[in-house]
Design a binder for these strands. Structure first.
Lengths: 118, 118
DNA sequence: CCAATTGTTCAATAACTTTTGAACTAAGGA
DNA sequence: TCCTTAGTTCAAAAGTTATTGAACAATTGG
């Protein structure tokens, strides 16, 4: 079982921008970028919305070619398609992520974590 | 008479991305970038849609902080807000424009121009 | 096998966006 | 002043996107 992904050359600029132009999805991408290398599953994003709603937003990101989802057991391991995005749109992902990191208006993944402070 | 523009710090990343995530508006931005320095008025974009429709798209771009419109007589002189965008989101506009330049699927301003070829 | 976990699909609804045409305003030139 | 040019506003229609809950499917652990 694999999920449908566009090929690198099917990734469309307006579509990528439109898909990133949503606070929930931008928060997902920002979190993926902050954990780059670590594949995350959908439940890690539950702070951002209901299970159903995340399924919807994660499908949008995948169908636009922003993320890759690998099926492993009952989980989907989600990663950024940095390689393909950098090839198609050099510098775009980095500048979006850098701007998103500074965006205090975006929802936060892990907002309920226990903070340990010195 | 002046038109409402957001201040630089009111420009929102998701909103800018959403507004750029439309082929007509991306074509407008691409054309503005290709003529940077030269202020253009709305009628120069009539290839991309009806007068009313352009008024709508140009208002979206202005309200998102992507463009600036200066009222001069009955015209609005439209320019990219490159200074503010570069300050708020370094590298973003350049990477979007570079990608848009390569995007053959976008509509073209001046598609009906007479081409002189050697 | 049974139950729990992980995530999808479906249909409904609500909310927004795009596009259109007709009517309008405001400035500039004859 | 009257006409033209440049662009806006408004309301309607069409289309799209986001959110929800209930039902479903597939895998894993006991």
């Amino acid at each position: 079982m694999t999920l449908p992904h566009p090929t690198a050359d099917q990734i469309s600029l307006p579509n990528v921008l439109a898909v990133l132009g949503d606070p929930t999805r931008l928060a997902i991408v920002r979190y993926l970028a902050s954990k780059e290398g670590v594949p995350l599953n959908c439940s890690q994003f539950l702070d951002l919305g209901s299970k159903t709603n995340l399924s919807y937003h994660l499908a949008k990101l995948r169908e636009a070619g922003v993320t890759r989802a690998e099926v492993v057991g009952t989980s989907r391991l989600i990663t950024l398609r940095r390689d393909d995005l950098d090839r198609r749109f050099p510098g775009l992902l980095d500048s979006v992520i850098a701007a998103a990191v500074d965006d205090t208006a975006l929802p936060v993944v892990g907002a309920h974590e226990i903070k340990i402070h010195a």
